[in-house]
Amino acid sequence: MDLITVSGPPSSGKTAILMKTISNFLSRGVKVGVVKFDCLFTDDDIYFEKLGIPVRKGLSGSLCPDHYFVSNIEEVVQWGIEQKVDLLITESAGLCNRCSPYIKNIKAVCVIDNLSGINTPKKIGPMLKSADIVVITKGDIVSQAEREVYTMKVQSVNPKAIIMHVNGLNGQGAFELSTLIYDETKNVTTLEGEKLRYPMPAALCSYCLGETRIGKDHQMGNVRKIDLSGKNG
């Protein structure tokens, strides 16, 4: 099973992009599962369910969503393996622009949109700066010049990333994205011992104190566990 982490500001188009991309996978016979992380509310799991794929959601509630993400990612990986998917996608909203739920050696995709203003790329922080692929959405409604300027701004904070334009409404670019994010030779069996790309800021749990290692042994304090057994995790 391959694993990718997708994140981006709220309403940037993450779910729309993933829906189109997953459709491309399904037509190629690649089995995909999704775990959606959010803070207070999401019904995106219903959309994903319509594609007929295994999906779970996790709401962090009063906890920082990114801390919640990393506290649960290993269990999520094991769930994906149980579901026998070829590709497991985690989707999470970057709510504070400071964290990034990216893991070393696991492909990281950041989704941002053209409407968010040209200074947004420098506001976003590690979530954008350390992503492998940056997907820019909503290009169908802004001018070519603004797209070019915005792309340059993204490139100037993350020159290493592949920057792609994908249209979440008609799916233009989604096929191309699907060829970039899935590596069938990659086999993730556990994230135990793997590390985050960037330490998360101070707050409540062991990860607030700068812990980057994954797994139960490294978790202390206020750790909330995802419920992977039922549908309303």
Partner: peptide, 17 residues
Amino acid sequence: ASNKLVAQLSQNMNFVM
């Protein structure tokens, strides 16, 4: 990203800045 082959113009596009 910087040597994109294609520039696009469509009716739905607006200036937002």
